[in-house]
């Protein structure tokens, strides 16, 4: 088991490292291709004429005249060991590991910006995930028990509708109903759960519901097809022949087997979602990682884009890692070595 975890962990680290290399390279190549200095993407402006002494000094200050591997090492060692950031004029800023650099646009450490934004996104994703997993699996299971019945038809038509509607439709619709028409969920800004759980919950309900609506639909369809297949298996017949009650047969024997592949998809979905909440955050005006990245892209704020990309990749890799480990426990046939 330990060996299995170690091997998977090593693989995860390699993937994260590769992602860091690729993102770093992309953001080095872009300035070269667009014939601007990387300095522009770093501080957001070209303060001096190109080829001037001052510009050369700045390029040197940020290390853009170093070979690519040295620049990468500077970037990586910053994340691993921290670094001191200086523009040569102001007081140097001590940035401890993991240091993703400094946003000269926002005059803030990227790490600090992400630390403020991440809880918003994570609250949103985890809450939505719990909701869609429970809702989707429940709808799928009930649909599967009597295929073709009214419950099944309503469930499947509903989920087809849900999966076809994008967040920028369901989101404003929910806002229109619950915030503007009924007024039951007045516009509240996000507060961390540690500060005010009630307001945190109120600000999160609508994003959760609209995300769960979208994702839950897929889970309902998946659960239904898996469940129909499982309920036709020989071991379900055995369970019935033993005299087990219907709920036991359905949940302990049927759902237990049908849910296994769903766990895999759940891990990947959750991991992907953390890095792709832009639309939801924009619709509900939440300042999460998605909002942070879209703002950084608009402002060509390279350090922030780099930071968010790497964090999103790390979350996805961790989610997959957990699923791998979990799978060994859920499915005893998975060989652990």
């Amino acid at each position: 088991m330990i060996r299995f975890i170690a091997v998977r962990l090593l693989g995860a680290i390699v993937v994260v490292w590769l992602v860091s290399v690729v993102t770093f390279l992309i953001f080095q190549i872009v300035p070269t291709l667009s014939h601007t200095s990387p300095v522009y993407y770093y501080i957001g402006k070209i303060p001096f004429p190109p080829d001037s002494i001052q510009m050369k000094a700045l390029t040197h200050r940020f290390g853009f005249d170093l070979p690519l591997y040295a620049q990468y090492w500077h970037f990586l060692s910053g994340i691993l060991f921290g670094q001191t950031i200086t523009d040569g004029v102001s007081t140097p800023i001590q940035c401890s590991a993991p240091c993703f650099g400094y946003s000269f646009r926002q005059h803030q450490l990227v790490g600090t910006m992400m630390a403020t934004a991440a809880p918003v996104t994570i609250s949103m994703c985890i809450g939505a995930a719990i909701l869609w997993l429970i809702g989707g699996v429940a709808v799928g299971t009930f649909s599967a028990l009597k295929p073709g019945s009214l419950v099944d038809r309503v469930g499947m038509t509903g989920s087809l509708a849900a999966v076809s509607l994008p967040i920028f439709f369901t989101g404003p619709l929910l806002l229109l109903i619950f915030e503007y028409t009924l007024g039951v969920l007045p516009d509240v800004s996000y507060l961390p759960i540690t500060q005010d759980p009630a307001q945190w919950l109120r600000s999160m309900i609508l994003p959760w519901v609209s995300l769960a609506f979208l994702f839950g639909a897929l889970y309902a369809r998946l659960t239904r097809s898996n469940m129909i297949e499982t309920m036709g298996e020989d071991y379900i017949r055995t369970a019935r022949a033993k005299g087990l009650s219907r709920p036991t047969v359905i949940v302990r024997h049927g759902l237990r087997a049908a849910i296994t592949p769903i766990v895999t998809i759940f891990g990947i979905d959750l991991g992907t979602l953390v890095g792709s909440t832009v639309i939801t955050e924009t619709v509900f005006n939440l300042r999460g990682l998605g909002y942070l990245s879209i703002q950084a892209i608009q402002q060509s704020d390279l350090p922030v884009i780099l930071g968010v990309t790497i964090i999103a990749a790390v979350v996805l890799v961790i989610a997959n890692f957990i699923v791998d480990i979990l799978y060994a426990f859920i499915d005893p046939r998975v060989t652990v070595y």
Partner: peptide, 12 residues
């Protein structure tokens, strides 16, 4: 007792 004991036993 069923015919195919592998598929008749729950794998999990």
């Amino acid at each position: 007792i069923f015919q195919d004991p592998l598929s008749s036993l729950h794998p999990f």
